[in-house]
Amino acid sequence: MVSSVWAALGLSLTCISALSLISPAWFQTQTFSFGVLTYCSLPQGNSWNQSCVTFRSLEDIPDFAWKVSAVMLLGGWLLLAFNAILLLSWAMAPKGLCPSRVSGPMPGVQAAAATATIAGLLVFPVSLASPFAKAVCEGSSAYHGGRCQPGWGYVTAIFNAILASLLPVISWPRVTMTSIQGMTIFFSSDTERIILVPEMNK
């Protein structure tokens, strides 16, 4: 049951991360918005008639910091997707094959995904100093949006990174220790085993 919850969380984080990556609303004005992979222009007062363009390769992305951020964010998403597949297979595997089913097989993959995503989020605002962003945002510079405001895509990516960084911490194996009648009992929530160890007399 617990492993199924972790698998569902992993899949949810992967889907939310993909949604934020393809979103063009990372920084936006009333008539223009852009994200990591897409930018859109929309007529004044007509948000339904917008036209969008997707960067098809790294060469099309207009700034070096933007390219670095895109690589980090895509790498973080790939690690999230890989971790979600591992968690799903972990949850669906027969219990006899996987006695340790609580925190998943590889919490380090989730931590690496969170690290790459956070690094990409920190690098992306440097691209506000690019000629592309300056033309759109009028007076923008690194970590200063000018006329552009952060959109829902960037905010969603930040919340997703926070959740992805918290999950490895709360899923780490926890071991508690209890002393009963001269015996020390270790309860491991990860291995689901009880280990009895005699106490040493002082």
Rank of each mutant, 00 (worst) to 15 (best):
G151F: 06
A161Q: 07
A111N: 04
E138N: 12
C137I: 08
P125E: 02
P105D: 08
A84F: 06
F82W: 10
L88Q: 04
V109C: 11
A84R: 06
T115I: 11
L121P: 05
M106W: 13
A91E: 02
L86Y: 08
E138T: 10
P107F: 09
S140N: 01
K134Q: 15
A164V: 06
L97I: 14
S141N: 12
I158Q: 08
P125Q: 01
K95T: 14
G139C: 05
I85K: 06
I118P: 01
A81L: 15
P150Q: 03
P125F: 04
A113F: 08
M106V: 14
L122Q: 03
G146C: 07
Y143N: 09
L86W: 06
E138K: 14
T115V: 14
V155D: 06
P150G: 01
G108S: 11
P105W: 01
I118N: 02
S89D: 04
C98G: 00
Y143S: 09
S127V: 10
I158D: 05
P105Y: 01
L128S: 04
A142D: 07
L128V: 10
S89M: 13
I158F: 12
G145A: 10
G145M: 05
Q149E: 12
A157T: 05
A93F: 08
I162T: 02
G153T: 07
G108W: 12
V136T: 02
G104P: 02
A114Y: 08
A142Q: 09
I158N: 07
I118S: 13
K134D: 05
S89R: 15
S89N: 12
E138M: 12
A84C: 09
C148S: 08
T117N: 06
A112F: 15
V109E: 00
I162H: 00
E138W: 10
A164W: 09
W90P: 00
L128A: 09
W90F: 13
E138D: 13
M92Y: 09
N160R: 01
G96P: 00
P107V: 08
F82T: 14
P99N: 06
C148W: 00
V109D: 03
T156R: 00
R101H: 11
K95I: 15
P99L: 11
F124N: 00
G146R: 02
S130R: 10
A135I: 00
A93R: 10
A111I: 07
C148F: 05
V102H: 11
F132K: 03
A142S: 15
A157N: 11
F159T: 11
G108L: 11
A135Q: 13
M92F: 14
P125V: 09
G104A: 09
F82A: 15
P105L: 11
P105H: 09
